[in-house]
């Protein structure tokens, strides 16, 4: 009995340690995007291009 229990404990400890090492495991949370980051999705990026895109829309879509 004892050796088996010791083994189990050891396995559990090792497993926990291993899991702790995998710091980048993604845990699913409903409704939350956890995919790759997109630099161009940020507020700053959107702000930076907003004027260009407005100007572009006027160039592209008005009947000059």
């Amino acid at each position: 009995m004892m050796p088996k229990r010791t083994t189990l404990c050891a396995v559990a400890v090792v497993t926990l340690m291993l899991l702790a090492g995998c710091s980048d495991v993604t845990m699913y949370e409903p409704g939350v995007y956890k995919g790759s980051g997109d630099d161009t999705a940020s507020e700053e990026a959107a702000e930076a291009r907003a004027d260009d895109l407005r100007e572009r829309a006027r160039t592209a879509h008005t009947d000059r």
């Binding site: 829309a57 006027r58 592209a60 879509h61």
Partner: peptide, 29 residues
């Protein structure tokens, strides 16, 4: 978009029927 350009479908629309961009600008047009 990152280059400051809009979707090519809208930019190339034959009659400027399909328009794209900042909602304020396109609703104005």
């Amino acid at each position: 978009v990152e280059e400051g350009k809009l979707p090519l479908c809208a930019e190339m629309c034959a009659t400027k029927a399909l328009i794209a961009g900042d909602g304020d600008v396109i609703s104005d047009i």
